Amino acid sequence: MLADVSLTLAAGETVALLGASGSGKSTVLRLIAGLDRPSAGEVLVDGVPVRRTHPRAAVVFQDPRLLSWRGLAANVAFGLPPGTPRAGRAAEVAHWLEVVGLAAYAGHRPSQVSGGMAGRAALARALARRPGVLLLDEPFAALDALTRLRMQDLLDDVQRTQGTTVLLVTHDVDEALRLADRIVLLGDRPASVVATLDVPAPRPRAHDDPTLPPLRGELLRRLGVPHHRPLPTPPAQEAVR
């Protein structure tokens, strides 16, 4: 359940939503996407109330949700905007598969690739829509560490070149600091915004940007994670005679 959640995203801004499991992060994303309806209050995109899924928005869930009977290329094609010329569809699909490193797997079905590869195909499907608003629910959670860093770089590049507005739901503090202009912390019972932190470092940001560690410590403190907690001293043992 959400309570007192007021959130504004500026055009072209990347906002990360952080909080414990069950704090309502995914619920906020689903409301913005038009997949759920609020029992009170309203959601606006470009000043217009959201009553159903919005044509300018694309969603990437932690579960890729690909069509199992279609190959990866056909899944990506499913995300193309209505009215895309037939002559350009194949080239557009091929471009986004190449971007996410799946060009060699265009004909593979979701069951024939790893979960991480399926996640990359889901991201390509969303990007193929060239959305004005991109809603991401932990899209990189299933990826190995190196691929995750590459996909973060890709998302950052796409966002900056296309001016997409991004809402990123994540549990990863470092990912939020790497990608977001602003980080919003949700508390739970019931869920509400408890803090907002601007990330002043200019983007693109290096993974080892020296300005980020102090912000990381501040985020962990606000999330209630102790920076250092010594291990308890084990009880003394008597010598065996």
Rank of each mutant, 00 (worst) to 15 (best):
A3R: 14
D4N: 13
T8G: 00
S21A: 12
S23M: 04
G24T: 03
I32R: 04
A33P: 07
G34L: 12
G34Y: 11
L35V: 12
D36S: 13
P38R: 08
A40V: 02
A40C: 01
V43Y: 10
V50T: 06
R51T: 15
R52L: 03
T53Q: 15
P55R: 08
V60H: 00
W69E: 02
R70C: 00
G71D: 12
A73L: 09
A74F: 02
N75P: 02
G79S: 05
G83N: 10
T84M: 09
T84Q: 11
R89F: 07
A90M: 04
E92Y: 06
A94M: 06
H95R: 15
L97I: 11
E98W: 04
G107A: 15
S111G: 12
Q112P: 06
S114M: 04
S114P: 11
G115V: 08
M117C: 05
A118S: 14
A118Q: 14
A118L: 05
R120Y: 07
A121C: 13
A121E: 12
A122S: 14
L127E: 11
A128L: 09
R129C: 10
R129L: 14
R130M: 03
M151Y: 05
D153T: 14
L154Q: 07
T164Q: 10
T164I: 13
L167Y: 05
L168S: 11
V169H: 00
V169D: 04
V169I: 15
H171K: 00
A176E: 04
L177V: 05
R178W: 01
A180F: 03
G187V: 00
D188M: 07
P190G: 06
A191N: 00
S192V: 00
V193R: 12
L197T: 08
D198R: 12
V199E: 12
P200V: 02
P200T: 02
A201F: 01
P202V: 09
P204I: 02
L212R: 04
P213A: 10
P214D: 11
L215K: 05
G217D: 14
L220D: 09
R221G: 11
R222E: 11
R229V: 05
L231H: 08
P235M: 05
Q237S: 14
A239D: 13
V240A: 15
V240W: 15
